[in-house]
């Protein structure tokens, strides 16, 4: 995973709440067995509408998505994170994220930054008035800045550290393999096995 410290890019306003992972990438794309190449699936059904924000010329090349509350609800598909990243997004900003989506984002290297809904509204206004406004998301300082706008954002401390270091979770866990083995030795006999 690449290290994440500070990112600056243009941003797209997604004025919708409850953007579920079926909207982010429909099930049809989940039949693939690769981890990349999901950019065509991103918001597939909404992108059929020429007026959808990502189809508008002024929002080409964006890397920050500013979305309404409860982003990423529903299915646990990590493909939603892959589709956002394959399209070019580095950061999603919202007032609330679904738990599984947020966890998946941390694993994949997509930053989910939580701010108040009032900050989302201010950012929407800024990037709608001038879509070329650079938005800077500083993970070290946990601050978002854009055209005079500044707001602290929330991110889990441990996820923040992992993103900043670009660390692989499995490698970290395997450092504690002796503790796992010790735990296994104490598991009750009555626990089921699949064999």
């Amino acid at each position: 995973m690449d290290k994440f410290t500070v990112h600056t890019g243009t941003a797209a306003p997604l004025r919708a709440s409850n953007v579920d992972t079926d909207q982010i990438v429909p099930a049809e794309y989940l039949k693939r067995i690769t981890r990349h190449g999901f950019e065509d699936g991103l918001f597939n059904s909404w992108r059929k509408d020429a007026n959808f924000v990502l189809n508008r010329p002024e929002y080409q090349g964006v890397s920050v998505l500013v979305a309404g509350p409860d982003f990423g609800t529903g299915s646990s598909r990590e493909h939603a994170v892959w589709a956002l990243m394959d399209y070019g997004f580095k950061v999603v900003i919202s007032s609330r994220f679904a738990d599984i989506f947020r966890g998946n984002s941390g694993k994949g290297g997509l930053l989910t930054a939580v701010v108040e809904q009032s900050s989302v509204e201010q950012l929407w206004k800024i990037i709608e008035e001038d879509p070329t406004t650079p938005v800077t998301v500083d993970l070290v300082a946990q601050v978002i800045t854009a055209a005079g706008f500044t707001a602290k954002f929330e991110v889990d401390n441990y996820v923040r550290w992992r993103l900043m270091e670009g660390l692989d979770d499995i490698g970290l866990t395997l450092k504690h393999v002796d503790e796992i083995t010790a735990f296994e030795a104490k598991r009750p006999r009555f626990k089921p096995t699949t064999v």
């Binding site: 990590e78 599984i100 998946n104 694993k107 979770d169």
Partner: peptide, 10 residues
Amino acid sequence: MGIGTSEVEH
């Protein structure tokens, strides 16, 4: 609990 594919691998 539902988990994502990275967690499945984990």
